[in-house]
Computed example of a mutant assay.
Amino acid sequence: MSTNPLQQLTEAGVSIWLDDLSRERIETGNLADLVQEKFVVGVTTNPAIFQAALADGERYDPQVRELAAAGADVDAATRAITTDDVREACKVMRPVFDATNGVDGRVSIEVSPGLAHDTDGTVAEAADLWKTVAEPNLFIKIPGTPEGWPAITETLANGMSVNVTLIFGLDQYRSVMEAYVDGLERAAENGHDLSSIHSVASFFVSRVDSEIDKRLEATTEGPGTDPALRGKAGVANARLAFQAYEQFFAGERWEALAAQGANTQRPLWASTGVKNPDYDDTMYVVDLAVENTVNTMPEKTLEAVADHGVVRGDRVRPFYDDAQAHMEALEEAGVDYDDVIAVLIKEGVDKFVVAWDELQSTLSESLEAARS
């Protein structure tokens, strides 16, 4: 038995992905090193990640100058820079993709966050991103909003692989899984090979604790004042999501698709960086270890797990009852779960819109400077 926590996670059936990307990581060989040394088998990006990379990265300067000279506007420049990074990352990850028959080795790129409530716009941009990056190990990230659900179905129906993002709630998650199966059924009707279509459902973890803890801390009387209720909702919610996953991908409807080579839509634990310094900085990884899942980690969390993570086997299936009991205790304490989820979805979209605007503002300034 390995003593390396990252290897132990891998052996437990958890795919370790990096929640970060920059041109520096690609060009210095850092990303390739993480694959070889840290068991990283996938990459996720989002507008905030690209905004941080561009703000700090001088490696983008030559391309910015070329784009400025060519007269590119900020939208075209943003598309060129982000898709170039993702395409090169796909090439780095391609050996993993080939070795795992397409399960891992994936790199995700997100549709513009301003399209989170625009079904037709999302479908069009997903197709354009797929064509522009033109690598088979790409995942198109589509928000799990009500307007995103039909876009997920349509994108899958056209044979593209999808990472559904910004999932916080159990009912929301069930709608995402429905959209996935609807998409596979239509893909089969359209003549696509279902075995080549993959998807993950990105279920956010730490933000659930942040929002619920905030509400508990504002409670002045009753069961909500019990400090033992804090810092446990994120893991409990995710455990119940995995239970929903196991229940959903069963029965005749799914078996008919599986017989055609369809892959289940793996749960992906996202937002796994611990935001409260009082909590174990590895808990959203080690406490959600279970086979057939993905855990996408910022590098700080990846290093924390490598240094002192304690992997104790399946930490999800044996705890379904505990998770349900905790969520019921929160309800008794006055926490409105549906309102928490609604707030988190809105905040999630808004944060990515802000990051995207900041990315474009930074790039606009860089283009202007390059033209002067």
Rank of each mutant, 00 (worst) to 15 (best):
L170T: 10
I26V: 15
Q265M: 01
Q36T: 14
V41S: 15
V340C: 03
D120N: 12
E24C: 06
V164W: 10
A250R: 15
V208D: 02
Y180I: 05
P5I: 03
V176Q: 03
V353Y: 02
F242D: 01
R23E: 09
A262M: 02
S196Y: 00
T100V: 00
N46Y: 11
T282R: 04
E328R: 12
N190H: 13
A233N: 10
D314F: 11
D278Q: 14
L240K: 00
T78G: 10
F248N: 02
A201M: 11
V64E: 10
A262G: 09
P150F: 01
N263T: 02
C90Y: 08
V43T: 05
A333Y: 05
Q51M: 14
D33L: 11
Q51P: 06
V208F: 03
G222A: 07
S199T: 12
T122C: 08
P95Q: 11
A157P: 02
S195E: 08
G183E: 08
N101Q: 14
E221V: 14
T220V: 14
A342N: 08
V74A: 06
R312V: 11
D322M: 04
S206T: 10
P136I: 03
L31I: 10
G273I: 06
E368P: 04
T122V: 07
R186A: 15
R230V: 02
T119L: 13
T362P: 06
R266V: 04
A124N: 15
S22R: 09
D118Q: 12
G273C: 07
M283W: 05
D281S: 14
D336E: 13
V349H: 11
S22P: 08
N263E: 00
T272F: 05
D339K: 15
P143Q: 01
A259W: 09
T272L: 09
V235A: 08
V123T: 06
G71K: 09
A80R: 01
D128W: 12
G102E: 07
A80F: 01
Q243K: 14
Q247P: 00
E154D: 14
P5H: 05
G313F: 06
R207P: 00
T153A: 12
E211P: 03
P5G: 06
D118K: 15
L156G: 05
P95C: 09
D314A: 06
R174F: 03
L138V: 12
A306W: 05
L288I: 05
V103E: 13
V111C: 13
L34H: 00
L257D: 06
E331F: 08
L240D: 00
K141S: 02
S15P: 03
I142N: 02
E58I: 05
G148E: 09
V316K: 00
D209Y: 00
D84S: 12
T122G: 05
A355V: 05
D280E: 12
A124E: 15
V290Q: 10
V107M: 08
M93Q: 04
L194A: 06
H198K: 13
G148R: 03
G234H: 01
V96I: 15
A228K: 13
D209A: 01
A259H: 08
S364H: 10
V123D: 05
S361K: 15
G144F: 07
V311F: 09
A187R: 09
W269L: 00
D314Y: 09
A228F: 01
P62N: 07
D182H: 11
T82E: 01
A69P: 01
G159F: 10
R312K: 15
V64L: 11
R59D: 13
F203D: 04
E255W: 00
G42A: 07
L156P: 02
